[in-house]
Structures are given as C-alpha cells and as structure tokens.
Simulated assay, not measured.
Amino acid sequence: MPITPQHLHATLTTYLSRHPEDKDGLAALTTALEAHPDTIASRKEFRGHVTAGALLLRPDGRVLLVEHKALGKWLFPGGHLEDTDTTLMGAALRELAEETGIDPEQVTPDSPLPLHIDIHPIPANPAKDEPDHQHFDIRYLFRTAADVAELQTEEVLDYSWQFADQITAEPLRTRLLAVPLS
C-alpha cells in the first residue's frame, strides 16, 4: 500500500510537536496536506509534493552529499515517493540505496522521526513536462560506517562526505551537530 495521507499527517504532527519552532516555515506543507491529501505523495502534484531524504552520518561526523545531475547541485540523497513505498523512512532508505549502492543492511536508522523537513523550489523541467514546483522533503537520519558502492549515474554525478559543521542550512546544521557520534 502506498504512503497514505494519514502517515504523512502523523509524521508532520509528531515532527512539529518535537520542533514547534518549524511550524511557520512548514505552513506551505501543512496547507498542501490539507488541500490535496490524496495527491501530495505523487510526483505529478505540481502544487507541491512530498519527497524523502536520507541524512547519512558516519562515525567521524561526516554527512553524505551527492551531486544531483538534473539540478546541478550538491544535495542529500533522496527523491520521489513510489507506489511501493509504505513509509517515509523506507522511501528515504530506498532512495539512499538506489543513488549510492549502499546496502540497507549497512545502515541504521537513528530515530523513527525525521530530523528535518525542508521545503525547496524545483525549477521547471521542459524535458519531463514539469512546471516549477516545491518539494516537501522529509529527511531521516541514518548511520553507517559503509562507503558509497556504486552511484546511480542517471541521477548522480559524484559524492562527497562533508563534516556537519560545513552544512550551512539552519536548523539542519545545528541539529546535525547536536547528534552524538558513535
């Protein structure tokens, strides 16, 4: 069964109870979830749709970034939800494995709750007949000692392990730096 509006709502509600300071910044997600709950998980919903991201932390405090081919930017692994995804965390783990070749057995979820939710604009892509839209990226923290095995070259050009203090986006930077290293 695909990810349900109830799962999305429960995730957002739990996240906001833990991070109430993010409420105003996530108003667009809250509004979209209320306005079109049955399509917000679809990549064809151009009023904005949910994606899942993986924040992969190594024991030395470095976080994985991948160079996204279509956007030409360094991002955290992640992407669109698929009909086979049943949870947001599972979708993030699937995307991580697809983009990096890291075996999910070598990855441990840090928490069942997202560490961060980000809203960011995606430019129009005429080749895919997609207008500009927003991604509501639900990001989960995972831990690993593994390295990238094989990049998904259709979507990813390169990868880099960056120390968390090099991440500039707040509040993500502060939250990553607060995670105890193991």
Score class of each variant (00 low, 15 high):
residue 67 E to P: 00
residue 89 M to L: 14
residue 62 R to W: 00
residue 50 V to E: 10
residue 57 L to Q: 14
residue 61 G to Q: 10
residue 107 V to I: 11
residue 33 L to Y: 05
residue 100 T to Y: 08
residue 66 V to Y: 08
residue 94 R to W: 06
residue 42 S to C: 14
residue 76 F to D: 05
residue 52 A to M: 08
residue 115 L to N: 05
residue 87 T to N: 06
residue 72 G to R: 10
residue 96 L to H: 11
residue 97 A to E: 12
residue 99 E to Q: 15
residue 35 A to W: 03
residue 109 P to V: 10
residue 104 P to A: 09
residue 80 H to V: 07
residue 80 H to L: 02
residue 115 L to V: 05
residue 51 T to P: 00
residue 115 L to Q: 04
residue 42 S to V: 01
residue 40 I to G: 10
residue 63 V to R: 11
residue 61 G to H: 10
residue 82 E to W: 02
residue 73 K to R: 12
residue 66 V to T: 15
residue 98 E to D: 14
residue 73 K to G: 00
residue 112 P to G: 04
residue 48 G to Q: 09
residue 88 L to S: 07
residue 65 L to A: 07
residue 46 F to E: 00
residue 66 V to F: 10
residue 87 T to A: 04
residue 87 T to D: 06
residue 44 K to R: 14
residue 65 L to E: 13
residue 47 R to I: 01
residue 81 L to H: 03
residue 104 P to T: 09
residue 88 L to V: 04
residue 104 P to I: 13
residue 96 L to Y: 08
residue 53 G to C: 07
residue 85 D to N: 14
residue 74 W to N: 01
residue 86 T to C: 03
residue 66 V to A: 08
residue 43 R to D: 11
residue 72 G to P: 06
residue 79 G to W: 07
residue 67 E to Y: 14
residue 63 V to T: 14
residue 73 K to Q: 06
residue 31 T to R: 12
residue 107 V to W: 01
